[in-house]
Amino acid sequence: MIKLAKNFVVGTWSLIKGLAVTIKYFFRPTVTLQYPTEKQPMSECYRGLVGLRPEKCIVCYQCVKICPTACLAITHKQEDKKKTLETFKYNMELCCFCGLCQQVCPTSAIIMTNIYEISVYDRKKLDINLLDMKKYDEWTNTTIK
């Protein structure tokens, strides 16, 4: 009988403690953001969409070799000893945002931008020609400094 009464008191007290925790946070300020209007700043090294600085590229094919999902494809023109980029295809659908291409690039030509809102309505838009960076215009409004 005493044990029962004790259990009852302890049980009720535990429930009240639970209520105390929730009411404590009820009066605390909220921690979430109003997403499309307020955005969390991405860190400096954030790994978003892959971008390219074509003038720096030396066509060494390191990024193509390291890419685990084979989402990059390059073709080049050979003039004398100098290689020039012809196409630089980036298939965003396959990309796993691992950042390996950025790390292996000897000249920092290939970079990870901080564009993270990357959904599109048309599947064709997922195939990006990195030499034509205007493609990123539709995402740039989402970039945060």
């Binding site: 929730t22 009411i23 946070y25 009820f26 605390r28 300020p29 909220t30 921690v31 979430t32 109003q34």
Partner: peptide, 13 residues
């Protein structure tokens, strides 16, 4: 609203 504020959220805004 009540649930949102208990959970440190805004709820419908």
């Amino acid at each position: 609203k009540v649930s949102a504020h208990i959970q440190s959220r805004y709820g419908p805004m």
